[in-house]
């Protein structure tokens, strides 16, 4: 295998591009793809104050590293979810990356702040663990970005993530979710701008990027994620990709080019009628936001600034489905 750029020995093949790369030119390829995503979708500028959500895994550490190398000023945000040794280890990887590069890492620990952890809290709240985890992270990402005065929140969602979510939303025709499955969600009252600069890179490439750059990341999968639908969708898409390189890219970018606009109206209806959560002040369509309801159902304690405890909130029926 020879590098498509320099004809030296290649270390990785990217079949959807019909290209092989040596280490140096693979890094350049990753930078090129991220820069293209930022420019094409007008994600942010070098003047913006950027916060990247960091889990200690390959994607979030790769995008933090790529953005820094591309000249952006980026702080990190780590959310501790109380998933035992897995959370402890993931925090160490996030801290180690920040420490060795003298970067600012904001840390929020869910168990010590809200009095519940994902394994026990999701069980008590009768929610799928990945659903409770995703709900908590989205709420706290928004909250910390707004509180910290950041212009934009970056997440490490890659091409595989987006294609798998699209696959799931299409299988079940979750049209309200299809309408907002975009690389950029604009800022609005109570929400920061949210962007996904890794959408042009597959997760095999983000993992390879970390290995080539010598970035240590948490390899093992979250123990709560085993058997979830998202992973099964990824496996199914990888079977298709193996037979038809480029299928995931065509699926996702074809959706953006040709279909996403058809679902805009439904997504905008879903965004109407937002009011401030009576507990935390976050935007919500009901009196109490989904995160505060989760905290209460999980037996936790809402933040002191609200003065609301786990007792007097009418929660309505329990939802058990996962939010995409």
């Amino acid at each position: 295998m020879k590098c498509v750029t320099c004809r030296g020995p290649a270390i990785i093949d990217i079949r959807r591009h019909n290209s092989n790369f040596c280490a140096e030119h693979f890094i350049e390829q990753c930078q090129r793809q991220v820069r293209k995503a930022i420019d094409e979708f007008e994600m942010f500028t070098p003047e913006d104050k950027i916060l990247v959500a960091v889990s200690g895994g390959k994607d979030s550490l790769a995008i933090w590293d790529l953005l820094l190398d591309l000249g952006y000023q980026v702080d990190g945000l780590y959310i501790g979810l109380g998933i035992g040794e897995y959370s402890d280890t993931s925090l160490e990887y996030a801290r180690a990356y920040a420490r060795t590069r003298d970067l600012h890492l904001v840390e929020v620990d869910v168990p010590s702040t809200f009095g519940f952890d994902i394994p026990n809290g999701s069980r008590a709240a009768k929610r799928v663990p990945c659903s409770a985890c995703g709900l908590s992270k989205r709420h706290l990402f928004d909250d910390e970005a707004i509180k910290g005065g950041y212009d934009v929140l970056v997440t490490g969602h890659n091409l595989d993530d987006e294609a798998a979510v699209l696959f799931g939303n299409t299988l079940h025709w979750h049209t309200e979710y299809l309408g907002r499955q975009l690389p950029v969600l604009p800022a609005r009252e109570g929400f920061p701008r949210k962007v996904k600069p890794l959408v042009r890179l597959a997760e095999r490439e983000t993992a390879a990027y970390c290995i080539v750059k010598g970035i240590d990341y948490l390899v093992d999968e979250c123990p709560m994620a085993a058997g979830n639908k998202h992973l099964s969708y990824k496996s199914a898409l990888n079977e298709i990709e193996a037979m038809s390189p480029g299928a995931k890219h065509s699926f996702y970018f074809g959706f953006l080019d040709r279909a996403a606009a058809f679902f805009e109206v439904e997504a905008s209806i879903d965004r109407e009628g937002l009011v401030a959560c009576a507990s935390c002040g976050a935007p919500t369509t009901s009196e109490i936001c989904a995160f505060c309801r989760l905290v209460v159902r999980a037996g936790g304690q809402l933040p002191e600034r609200t003065g609301v405890t786990a007792v007097p909130v009418d929660l309505g029926p329990t939802r058990t489905g996962s939010i995409q």
Partner: peptide, 30 residues
Amino acid sequence: VRDGELVPGDESLSDGDSIEIRPVISGGAS
């Protein structure tokens, strides 16, 4: 991965080599 470096698909492994096959699929539903 071998000794911290990527090994390309066409490379041949010999007895005595020690490699890691590292999964790249990750993530919950969030």
